[in-house]
């Protein structure tokens, strides 16, 4: 009892920071920040479950994008060099509402079809798909009165009731119909 009165025994904690630093550096080195972002896609159902009905879709309601094995583009039966032009073309096509007889009847019926070749590179496909998605996101964003970036945030988090309402309102009668066709087997 007499001993403790002499002075409070204290553990030297100056090296605590060093220990914490060591741990911090370990985690900094060993971890990678998870990247869980990307382009989303909903695949069609199993081909064996779909009944074989031939539905005739008028030519004007389909926006055709073909990519061949040397990554060259054919958009609406005409060759195209610059991928970035697709975005404006799709907007014009979808928002036509029956005015131009070559373009779609209404956004509800408009379909964008992407057909690749088995030899098309994934890089090219992503470039094209990115522009197609971007065109739709731009149009939804305009309908909801927000920016493209904000729209994607809203669409990614529909568990929030406010977001869900905006999301459903903008997508009403305005579906995103992107068809990814089976690629050609021939290497043309």
């Amino acid at each position: 009892m007499a001993r403790s009165k002499r002075g409070a025994t204290e553990i030297n904690s100056s090296s605590m920071a060093d220990i914490a630093f060591l741990l911090l550096i370990f985690f900094l080195v060993t971890t990678t920040i998870a990247n869980d972002k990307g382009l989303t896609l909903q695949l069609p159902p199993n081909p064996e479950d779909i009944e074989d009905i031939d539905i005739k879709i008028p030519e004007r309601n389909i926006f055709k994008i073909l990519i061949n094995s040397s990554d060259r583009l054919m958009v609406e039966n005409e060759p195209l060099e610059d991928v970035r032009l697709i975005r404006e073309m799709i907007k014009e096509f979808v928002l036509n509402n029956g005015v131009n007889p070559e373009l779609s009847d209404s956004p509800k019926e408009a379909i964008v079809s992407i057909k690749t070749n088995r030899g098309t590179s994934y890089k090219r496909f992503i470039e094209v798909y990115n522009e197609v998605q971007g065109a739709y996101y731009d149009m939804y964003a305009a309908r909801a009165g927000v920016t493209n970036t904000k729209w994607r945030e809203i669409a990614s988090n529909t568990s929030d009731p406010d977001n869900k309402r905006i999301y459903q309102e903008a997508r009403k009668d305005f579906p995103m119909q992107i068809s990814i066709a089976e690629p050609n087997k021939a290497s043309n």
Partner: peptide, 13 residues
């Protein structure tokens, strides 16, 4: 991996 601009975030990892 090729880069893209129109990304969306996943809700549930």
């Amino acid at each position: 991996i090729p880069k893209a601009t129109e990304l969306r975030k996943l809700q549930r990892k």
